[in-house]
Design a protein around this nucleic acid. Structure first.
Lengths: 222, 222
DNA sequence: AGTGCTAGATAGTGGCAGTATCGAGTTGGG
DNA sequence: CCCAACTCGATACTGCCACTATCTAGCACT
């Protein structure tokens, strides 16, 4: 398949495909001549995956490269899962800020919140895990806004998150023996977040409408 | 308080504060002279809110402006909730794509998935809701990747999302009579998503570690 | 032989989120 | 009273990112 066909079947412009090549997201086609290369189904799938990770998953090109590197460098199912889990970017810019004293207070309080939560859930996570860092940063900001979570409320969220992660892993593990294990795993791990977020929004909309008890409200339902 | 003090207490550069003003995210201070204005605690809170929405919530400046407009134009608690819910951006670029025939097939299949889900959950959501559009787009992309959700699995995620939304709304409603209702509501609705995502990642890490049964693994836990 | 496609390299575009600079005005300390 | 330090608002500039366009040189089918 020529690059123009690859472009047509994926719906991605030729120039973008070349760009992905340059950025190392996509392997080169099999060169048949100095100015001609042959692409296969694996390229189609890879291009679609790149598109899904960037548009659905909201990953940057650099983050996508890291994730795909984890996919390609997979060593055993569990190692792959861990590599992908760590390659995925954390959705919080963790600026330490260090400003006044109250900031330091919020900082340590947030750290304590995270520690308590992890203990309460009996989670095994690395102290240096980017997810821990990110959660600390998030809780710190919420505290600064006087909108901190009470511990029991945080635990309630955590339990739901734990259940979701259970669904994800179960699904990812279902592909264990497939040749495309890593690829399916990255789809599950990276894209269930956005799907869950969408479902949360939908559920939120439902609950708000029911609260309003103005079910008709001028909008067509369903 | 002068702008330099506002900058110091919030940790946001003066130039950025001015930028927020220009973009209509922040009301002007009370002018005391042609080149001097007085800022108050409400400005401190607003700046922090802007920072939280953009960094934690990942909102663009434009989206933040829309959300804050919904906050300021609030009419009654429930109306506020609805306005905020709709002002929040949907985390999926919903490009219709319209390419080949198989695309149309994935499109309608995704639409059917969403309809079935909404029916199964007995959710009341607008047919034109951005969240419905977004979910359709997301499921379509997943289908194209041969990674669609089976209906029962999707329902399982939806039930968890429903539970999360319940926690959120309960919390947002707890502020009903406060003067800062809308502000707290936007914090809960906009920022619980990222927090949940972080918790999901943390839970994922825990489950992966347990699967590996290499608990030590060289990393310090907790 | 000519038209149309291709590869790879380099340069350019448009959007976004600030950041810097400027002229005009104000204020607080000496 | 004077001047350095600060402020206002407006305008321009910067850096990053994800493409997108252009160019040169080479195939390939008719």
């Amino acid at each position: 398949m020529k690059i123009s066909e690859l472009s047509r079947t994926t719906g991605v412009p030729v120039a973008s495909i070349k760009y992905f090549r340059r950025q190392g997201l996509l392997p080169a086609g099999r060169a048949t001549a100095a100015t001609l290369a042959e692409y296969g189904d694996e390229h189609v799938q890879r291009v679609r995956l790149i598109k899904a990770l960037t548009t659905l998953g909201g990953l940057s090109i650099a983050a996508t490269r890291d994730v795909l590197a984890a996919v390609d460098g997979a060593e055993g199912p569990d190692g792959t899962l861990k590599a992908i889990s760590y390659a995925l970017p954390v959705p919080v810019a963790q600026a330490p800020v260090e400003d006044a004293d109250q900031e330091a207070e919020a900082e340590s309080a947030a750290a304590a919140d995270v520690a308590d939560l992890v203990a309460a859930m009996d989670w095994r996570v690395a102290a240096a895990s980017p997810h821990v860092q990110g959660l600390r940063a998030a809780l710190r900001e919420l505290r600064r806004l006087d909108a901190g979570y009470q511990p029991d409320r945080l635990v309630a969220y955590a339990e739901l998150a734990h259940a979701v992660a259970g669904l994800d892993l179960e699904r990812a593990a279902g592909f264990d023996d497939s040749p495309a294990l890593a690829e399916q795993a990255v789809i599950v791990l990276a894209l269930s977040g956005p799907v869950l977020e969408l479902l949360r929004r939908l559920a939120q909309e439902d609950r708000v409408r029911r609260r309003m008890e103005l079910v008709g409200d001028g909008d067509d339902l369903l």
